[in-house]
Design a protein around this nucleic acid. Structure first.
Length: 926
RNA sequence: GCCUAGGUGGUGGAACUGGUAGACACGCAGGACUUAAAAUCCUGUUCCCGUUAAGGGAGUGCGGGUUCGAUUCCCGCCCUAGGUACCA
């Protein structure tokens, strides 16, 4: 029998599906292991060859863990709410659920073709009511919670109302809005229900507040900060403006520090951890008050309180609330003009234009908190209203922006350290000792900071403070295709619907566009009112809602009583291995950690972090192929195409050509003629009898004809080849262009494996004889190597090792059962179909290879006369050798005499052994 | 600017804690089998010098350093990719 991947792979995929081979055990003594992929958004374009890279890696790991005796949970599902389906609905009128269903079906077919070991009985879809019921339920928990800073955790809002009722707002230490009221218990109890609710909203983790949002007019919705890239929307690239709106938000800032600390406890790639750290943006510093005689003092945030005696002016953001009051009549015109100018600048301009120095003087002065000196107050757009207090103390000698500003407007630049060099630029050094700095003169940085904080605190004019860059996450979207927010409005205030009424189903609408009055699409739903009279919230949840807890649902996907049973959550705990792209660093991965922590605080599970280990797979880019069309004298395209190497001899224009009709950069000229009608009569200028195409690495896209569908590869070479080849392509984390240049080698390897089991006629040919030493050696080398490789996610090197092993066994003409059976167990994670087939051919029960024990590597098979051990000479030389030889003294002398370096190092010691490789001495034992 | 990752043959890439640089694969060249093709197998393939060979020299982005020994460690620079930015 020949290796027929087509029939063989279909057969086993069907077998696995019918037998539920990959369902984890319900009751077992085995340790658990949870391997998760970032679930995909099912887009209309289907999977391309880049998508499965991470899925293959996680599947290999999941299968490996099964062989290692773990009870493995390895599920898959769909993040099926999202913008593209809705945009498509707007254009075609097609209900998003219909498009989504079609796309999911296609995804499923493509995924099935690759032979993943998913437990499909646990599939989830975020757009299904029995799933989003629990997304809504979690929202309700967030609405019903507040963050108690004393306990450093979220608690039920009831604990807050209890305290309000008994002792008022006294002693409450919460993460909340800035404008919370101070009241006694008596006052609280005398508040109306509306007043109480209004106040509680300022504490809730999910809250409604007027805030500045990123409004994208083209998409008709607000966007979260991570959905805005360089001032335009991540999806579609439309302009985004700042707008004040009533919006649902999530108090993720309450968790800023825990999100930061948690990063030290997880095994994540360093770049990703760094990205989250930067996004959270913790700054340790101090807040300091500059005094104003009549008005509220100006509070500034600084990370360099030690430079406070170098302050020569104060800068407010143009939007700062005190600007109007501070502006003197004389400066009024100038300030108004500047404010207007800034308001006109878009976010994008303001970011792009960081070179020009601009600002205006308000005419007022504030008193320095320590010296009492008058400090002029300016406004400038380099100070951002949204960060810190929107005001900074300017220290030109220590901060480059302040320096440039001071030079431009002729303001004093005061040196504050004897180590500073401020001839050309500001010098932010912390070296040296302070000068011109009052009572900290002569101190070092380490001495000055605590001294200053102490002094400022004593005066009540400042304190140590920590600032975060991260903002609360906007939670509402003015769109149709998302989870409805389970909230209704009474007297303009939001209330949760009754939990028993979940899920709050997404209503039908006639069009997927905003209403005439500018309300979100849900405003079109006929008679959609709570208890027939109260308005529902009309915005829906953002895309990240459903994906922020989905790993829990896989643990117990059909539970109707809770998001997952206590037993399931206690058993599966957290995701042990999570594989996905780094593009989710500041979105999904941050929000998921946030919700996970909230659910933990509220007592639903015990895991502080949801994803223990995380791997980012690299992107697979497209590799476009080009043909070169010869142009005539008028510059018009002819029907003559010249091969890449000869194109410089002609006047040509490059054209994208479908990569599916190019093999190893050689064009199939017949298929090319059929590629487009006008190419029917194409003529070719060949080199060496071939048409060679040019190449370029670009993003995979339909318009560039460089999309490779995994189904096509599988049709030609099979799923096992695709799996092995995607791993063989290079390190998992690395981005790389797709090419099929080496796929033949992998396919050849699998056929070689097949042939090990068969004789020349294609009949099964297995011997039960005892294997030879070299056969054992080849086997145990691969057992050891693959185990090491998988544990450190170096899948590409495993593939090479397999090739070496099979070449060796093939050279040895090895057909011993004892060898081959173990070999295919080790190969199973990489190439499950062929191994399953061979496993059955050896007479084993079908399906059991997936749970066969991973062979134990035995070192005695590897040890020969070739030793590997470290040695040292004079306590200096330390080395590890792969090849060592004992020599008699005579030979040693000869070799040593010929090598001056070695002789120098011998230092009169007695030589016991000389190690040399290919005639070169590389070690001496004395 | 800052942060992070990386730079190795014609190509993808190996070399895990400093110890034979270029494993493995592709491609290319030559050969065997075959009427022929496919398939399979064998040999060679970093570059330069050496007519062949024996042999010699250089070589992991560049320049230094530590070391008997550096792709690996240290210092300075250049380039590429990703992230981020008037964040005080």
């Amino acid at each position: 029998m020949e290796y027929n991947h087509r029939s063989l792979e279909k057969k086993w995929q069907q077998f696995w599906a019918e037998n539920g081979t990959f369902r984890p055990a319900e009751t077992t003594d085995k340790p658990k292991y949870y391997v998760l992929d970032m679930f995909p958004y099912p887009s209309g374009a289907g999977l391309h060859v880049g998508h499965p890279l991470g899925y293959i890696a996680s599947d290999i790991f999941a299968r490996y863990k099964r062989l290692k005796g773990f009870n493995v949970l390895h599920p898959m599902g769909y993040d099926s709410f999202g913008l593209p389906a809705e945009q498509y609905a707007i254009q075609t009128g097609q209900h998003p659920s219909v498009t989504t269903e079609v796309n999911i079906k296609r995804y499923r077919e493509q995924l099935d073709n690759i032979g993943f070991s998913y437990d499909w009985s646990r599939e989830v879809r975020t757009s299904e009511p029995d799933y989003y019921k629990w997304t809504q339920w979690i929202f309700m928990q967030l609405f019903h919670a507040w963050y108690n800073k004393e306990a450093d955790k979220s608690e039920s809002i009831d604990s807050l109302t209890n305290r309000f009722e008994t002792s008022g707002s006294e002693g409450i230490y919460a993460v909340c809005d800035e404008d919370v009221l101070t009241f006694t218990a008596t006052e609280w109890n005398s508040f109306s229900v509306e007043e109480q609710q209004r106040e509680l909203l300022k504490y809730r983790l999910a809250y409604l507040r007027e805030s500045t949002v990123n409004w994208c007019a083209a998409l008709g919705t607000v966007l979260a900060n991570d959905e805005v890239i360089n001032g335009v929307s991540e999806r579609g690239g439309y302009p985004v403006e700042q707008k004040k709106m009533m919006q649902w938000s999530m108090r993720i800032t309450a968790y800023a520090d825990r999100l930061l600390r948690g990063l030290d406890t997880v095994d994540w790639p360093e770049p990703l951890v760094e990205m989250q750290r930067n996004w959270i943006g913790k700054s340790v510093g101090a807040s300091v008050k500059f005094l104003l005689p009549q008005l509220n003092d100006i509070e500034v945030f600084t990370t360099r309180v030690d430079t406070i005696f170098g302050v020569s002016f104060i800068v407010l953001a143009p939007e700062h609330e005190l600007v109007d009051a501070l502006t003197t009549d004389k400066q009024r015109v100038e300030i108004e003009g500047y404010k207007e100018k800034t308001a006109k600048k878009s976010e994008l301009d303001r970011m792009a234009d960081t070179k020009t120095v601009s600002g205006a003087f308000t005419g007022s002065y504030a008193k320095h908190p320590l010296t009492g000196a008058d400090v002029p107050i300016w406004i400038a757009d380099y100070v951002l209203a949204g960060y810190g207090t929107g005001a900074v103390m300017a220290v030109p000698s220590g901060d480059q922006r302040d320096y440039v500003f001071a030079k431009h407007f002729n303001l004093p630049i005061i040196p504050i350290s004897d180590a500073q060099n401020i001839e050309e630029d500001a010098d932010p050094t912390k070296e040296g000792r302070y000068i011109n700095s009052d009572f900290i003169n002569g101190m070092t940085y380490e001495e000055a900071v605590p001294a200053l904080i102490k002094r400022l605190e004593g005066l009540g004019l400042g304190k140590a403070k920590i600032n975060y860059r991260m903002r609360d996450a906007i939670f509402g979207r003015q769109r149709y295709w998302g989870e409805p927010v389970p909230v209704f409005f009474k007297n303009g205030l939001p209330y949760l619907i009754d939990e028993k009424e979940l899920p709050l189903l997404l209503p039908e609408v006639d069009k997927y566009l905003p209403t005439e009055t500018g309300e979100p699409p849900l405003g079109r739903a006929d008679g959609w009112k709570y208890q027939g009279k109260y308005e529902y919230e009309l915005s829906t949840m953002p895309g990240w809602a459903g994906s922020s807890w989905y790993w829990f649902r896989y643990m117990d996907p059909t539970n109707d009583e809770s998001f997952a049973s206590k037993e399931a959550v206690d058993y599966w705990k957290a995701v042990d291995l999570y594989i996905g792209g780094s593009e989710h660093a500041t979105g999904h991965l941050l929000y998921s950690r946030f919700w996970n922590k909230v659910l933990k605080d509220l007592g639903y599970h015990n895991e502080e972090e949801p994803f223990k280990k995380l791997i980012n797979q690299g992107m697979i880019q497209g590799r476009s192929n080009f043909v070169y069309r010869v142009l005539d004298e008028e510059g018009k395209g002819t029907n003559v195409f010249v091969s890449y190497g000869l194109k410089d001899q002609y006047h040509t224009v490059p054209l994208h050509v479908d990569v599916n009709i190019v093999y190893n950069d050689v064009l199939d000229t017949e298929k090319f003629k059929a590629f487009r009608p006008d190419f029917v009569n194409a003529k070719f200028v060949l080199e060496n009898g071939k048409y060679i195409c040019g190449t370029e690495v670009e993003k995979m896209s339909k318009s560039k004809f460089n999309v490779v569908n995994p189904d096509d590869i599988i049709e030609t070479y099979g799923a096992d080849t695709l799996r092995l080849y995607e791993m063989f392509l290079g390190p998992l984390e690395q981005s790389k262009p797709w090419n099929t240049n080496g796929i033949e080698g992998v396919y050849k390897f699998l056929r070689k494996v097949w042939r090990l089991f068969h004789d020349a006629e294609g009949n099964l040919f297995i011997s039960d004889d005892e294997p030879t030493k070299s056969e054992y050696k080849a086997l145990h080398k691969i057992i050891k190597k693959v185990e090491e490789d998988i544990e450190r996610f170096s899948f590409n090197t495993s593939v090479s090792a397999f090739m070496i092993c099979v070449n060796e066994l093939s050279d040895l003409k090895c057909n011993k059962r004892k060898i081959l059976q173990d070999l295919i167990i080790v190969l199973e994670p990489y190439a499950p179909h062929i191994t399953e087939e061979l496993w059955a051919l050896l007479g084993n029960e079908a399906g059991t290879i997936s749970y066969a024990p991973y062979p134990v590597f035995r070192s005695e098979y590897l040890v020969e006369s070739e030793f590997a051990y470290p040695v040292s000479v004079n306590g200096k030389m330390k080395m590890n050798l792969s090849l060592a030889l004992d020599l008699d003294a005579k030979v040693v002398e000869e070799i040593i005499l010929s090598n001056a370096d070695v002789q120098r190092y011998l230092d009169g010691k007695i030589v016991k052994k000389v190690v040399f490789v290919r005639g070169k001495i590389i070690n001496i034992v004395v």
